[in-house]
Computed example of a mutant assay.
Amino acid sequence: MIRTIKTFDHWLQVLTTFLHYVSNGLLFFIMLMISFDVIWRNIFNRPLTGAFEMTELGSALLVFFSLAITHQYKEHISIGFIVDKMSAKVKGLVLGIIEIGIFIILIVMSNQLFSNAARVMGRNTTTSDLSLPIYPFLYLSAFAAIVFAFVALSSGLKYWIKAVDKS
């Protein structure tokens, strides 16, 4: 069981690292897009076509792609004034339950994102300036949310293993 979790965790690490690199690329792209838009406005008195919507879509993907690695390395804000006072076993059980709760919420959220992407695809909804289809961005966000969900599941299982460990 523990070996299976370690293998699962290894592949999650690979996937979250890949998403992290993609999010870094998106951040660089957004930075360039905004810089060129400002330069174009000031020099040629004309905005860069589609800069706003590319920045908007890129920012949404940036957030979704960064959530899993942030959770994996426990870099998010947490308030543990009650949990920190518990014994190690109880703390492991409580944190495991919280992580499984996060997993369930993210699975429901991913399902809704996939459903919304299918509806948007059926309606052929596009952006206003560049006429880009919106559904691929929703599918990518849903995929990133699923990766985040599995990071939470893995974390919850690790907390429970620590809680029941006899050493």
Rank of each mutant, 00 (worst) to 15 (best):
K74W: 03
A149I: 00
T4S: 07
T7K: 07
L57D: 07
I77Y: 14
L138Q: 08
S154I: 00
I105P: 05
L140N: 07
L61D: 05
P136W: 09
L93V: 11
F114Y: 11
N111Q: 12
S155C: 13
L15C: 10
I98P: 02
V83G: 00
H20R: 14
S66L: 10
L132V: 12
I134N: 06
M121D: 08
V108I: 09
R119C: 03
I82A: 06
L132P: 03
M86C: 04
W11M: 03
L93R: 11
I43V: 15
F81P: 09
K162A: 14
F143S: 02
T4P: 04
A51K: 11
E53D: 12
M54H: 07
L32A: 15
L67K: 00
G25D: 12
Y21H: 06
M1V: 12
N24Q: 06
L48T: 14
F36K: 05
W40C: 12
F65S: 01
F148D: 00
K89V: 03
L140A: 12
L61G: 03
F103T: 01
G25S: 14
S78N: 13
K74F: 07
W40M: 13
T125L: 12
F137D: 01
R46C: 12
P136M: 06
Y21G: 02
K74A: 04
L95I: 05
I34V: 15
A145K: 02
P136G: 03
Y159W: 04
W40I: 07
N124M: 10
F44K: 02
V63A: 10
M33S: 14
A117D: 08
L57T: 05
S78Q: 15
S167C: 05
I39S: 06
S167I: 08
H10N: 06
V22Y: 06
S154E: 02
F36R: 11
M1F: 13
T17W: 04
V151W: 01
F52M: 11
G96P: 12
A149M: 01
V38Y: 15
L61P: 05
F150H: 00
V14G: 03
I98Y: 00
N42M: 06
R46N: 14
L157M: 04
G101R: 02
A163S: 07
Q112K: 15
K158G: 05
E99A: 15
T70W: 00
T127E: 09
T125Y: 08
S78V: 15
L157E: 02
F143K: 01
S131V: 07
A152V: 10
F29Q: 10
R41G: 09
